[in-house]
Amino acid sequence: MTGMAQTYDAAERPDHPGERAAADPIRLAEIRETPLSVDEVFAAVGDRAAGGTALFVGTVRDHDGGADVAQLGYSAHPTAQAELRRVAEKVAADHPVRAMAAVHRVGDLRIGDLAVVVAVSCPHRAEAFDACRRFIDDLKHEVPIWKHQTFSDGTEEWVGAQG
């Protein structure tokens, strides 16, 4: 039909290289002491074959478990960055990822600071959502990063990877 954009789905063009995962989709996987940038992570996953990009931003909130958080700090095992890459590789092996990136902050953070930024680009939006959710969930469960929270009543707790 004239004037209408033609659409294709993966089933119609299964052999197109853009429908497959990139050979090395991991563009950024770092643990940092410096403030994080959503723009940096989003730019890292730009890919001409990606029709969908999903981005997750984790921020420090002012409460947890019904208690007011006064301060928070993250620390990481020396293997955390390598484990982050391993998790990324595992997710990329199960999804048609064109590009992926993640950065996690360590050190003392304030309420509202960015703690983690994860992004995934895939040929289609559903794949991007699925891969991004899996990436952040696996990161939280498997990468050895621990959160130390101090509450306004003076109590404190450690929360960390259980993998």
Rank of each mutant, 00 (worst) to 15 (best):
V69L: 07
P96F: 09
P25C: 01
A128M: 00
W146N: 00
V41M: 03
V118W: 02
H124L: 06
L109S: 11
A101K: 04
M100R: 09
G163F: 12
M4P: 03
G112S: 15
G3I: 09
H124E: 07
G46W: 12
A161M: 12
V69E: 08
L109T: 10
D39K: 02
T155S: 15
R134D: 04
A50H: 03
R133Q: 07
D9L: 01
H63W: 14
A161N: 15
V41T: 03
I26A: 07
H148N: 14
D39G: 01
D130F: 02
R98D: 00
I31Q: 02
P25L: 01
V117H: 00
E142F: 09
D39A: 03
I31A: 04
F151W: 11
A131Q: 06
A76W: 07
G107E: 11
R48P: 08
A80G: 08
F56I: 02
M100A: 13
E30I: 01
R13K: 02
V118E: 01
K90R: 15
V87T: 05
A131L: 02
L36P: 11
A88S: 08
L109G: 09
A11R: 10
D137G: 15
A126E: 05
A21C: 14
Q149I: 09
A88D: 02
E127L: 01
D137W: 09
H104K: 07
V159W: 03
S152D: 12
G65L: 10
Q6N: 10
L114Y: 10
C132S: 03
V41Q: 04
R13M: 06
G51E: 06
V41N: 04
R98G: 00
E142V: 07
H63M: 13
D94H: 02
D47W: 01
E12P: 06
F129D: 00
V38G: 05
A82L: 09
A92S: 14
R98E: 00
A44S: 13
T59M: 02
W158K: 11
R86I: 00
T34K: 11
P35W: 06
H104R: 06
L36F: 12
Q149T: 11
V118M: 00
R32F: 01
R110A: 15
G107V: 11
V69D: 07
T2H: 11
L28C: 13
A88M: 05
G51Q: 06
V87Y: 04
H77P: 07
A11D: 11
D24G: 03
E89L: 13
H77R: 05
